[in-house]
């Protein structure tokens, strides 16, 4: 067996063990299926919309009532289970559409932050010296600006803007703002792990047989810290969703599509008139998804790397 095989053998048993332990946690598995359900809904909305945006199941523009009339939640039709908003549009469909908005933004933001954080962290940890100094300088600068202000600043600037010729608006502005500001945590973690591991036997062995630096990083080091990326991903996802809600609440998101933040924004002023259902629907949608993600993420971390202490 060459060292590559040993490496991958250890890795596969780590994942195998983790999944075996994870499956035994019934509660965590329930949460996993809830999250999976949300993702399925998001994919459904995405596909349905690309086929026919006026399809009745996702057409949130359709007015059920007359003009400004509010319809209270009722069971007389599926679309009015959660009532309607002040334009007579179904709250259920808006909430459903919000699933897609929130997950798409959170997912894209996660991908961006991993794409920036992981390579930078790996390079800083592996090469040290000037590279390390520069990366550390960049992320200490970012981490010294309170995250919320930073995201707001990015979101404001990236909202309705022309950048390098292209026009940027709506969702891309939001996930760019979140992604560009949130890679610090994963970058710091990966840098630390790589520094810890770069003197280990398997890396020295790879060096001794003449592997190139990029091969060592991508074939030997990163696969061994992959679980950290996964854990970070699952735990960060929740805060991205909450961030999306706040950004679109402040009107910095896509003005033309429903999102949970916009629903909350519209519903907050209606609450005093006794219109509670829109607010409740958006809140519960966020709450259930976040709760499931939090519990599942924690279980995943416990199973993969109980010692890992995550910054919030």
């Amino acid at each position: 067996m060459n060292e590559d095989n040993i490496n991958s053998f250890q890795r596969s048993s780590l994942w195998h063990d983790a999944f075996r332990r994870l499956r035994r946690r019934k509660f965590a598995m329930v949460c996993f299926w809830i999250v999976a359900g949300y993702f399925a809904l998001a994919v459904f909305v995405y596909i349905a919309e690309s086929i026919d945006p006026t399809m009745s199941a996702i057409n949130w523009k359709e007015q059920l009532g007359q003009g400004m009339e509010y319809q209270r939640p009722s069971l007389c039709s599926v679309k009015t289970i959660f009532g309607t908003n002040f334009l007579g549009q179904s709250t259920l469909i808006s909430t459903l559409y919000g699933v897609k908005t929130a997950l798409a933004v959170a997912f894209a933001a996660s991908v961006i932050s991993i794409m920036i954080g992981v390579p930078l962290g790996a390079a800083a940890g592996y090469f040290g010296g000037v590279v390390d100094d520069i990366v550390v300088w960049i992320y200490s600068t970012l981490s010294n600006i309170p995250w919320i202000i930073l995201v707001m600043a990015f979101a404001v600037v990236l909202n309705d803007d022309k950048i390098m010729g292209g026009k940027l608006s709506g969702e891309p502005g939001v996930y760019l703002a979140i992604g560009l500001t949130s890679w610090v945590g994963i970058c710091r973690l990966i840098r630390g792990e790589i520094i810890k591991r770069k003197e280990s036997e398997y890396v020295l062995a790879a060096k001794a047989v003449g592997c190139s630096n990029s091969r060592i990083i991508f074939r030997h080091l990163l696969p061994n810290v992959f679980h950290i990326i996964i854990i970070n991903f699952s735990l960060r996802f929740v805060s991205f969703i909450h961030m999306e809600v706040i950004i679109s609440f402040l009107g910095l998101g896509d003005a033309n599509k429903p999102s949970w933040g916009k629903m909350i924004s519209a519903a907050s002023s209606e609450l005093t008139r006794g219109i509670w259902w829109e607010m409740t629907a958006a809140t519960m949608a966020i709450f259930v998804l976040s709760l499931a993600l939090n519990i599942f993420g924690d279980a995943l971390r416990d199973c993969l790397d109980p010692k890992l202490r995550m910054e919030r």
């Binding site: 809600v245 933040g261 958006a282 809140t283 966020i286 976040s290 709760l291």
Partner: peptide
């Protein structure tokens, strides 16, 4: 704690303001 962390921030404020104060 986990439930508290999962509840959206805006809803805390809005519901809090509505129920407790209003």
């Amino acid at each position: 704690c986990v439930a508290g962390m999962s509840f959206p921030y805006l809803s805390y404020i809005i519901f809090g303001q509505y129920f407790i104060a209003y």
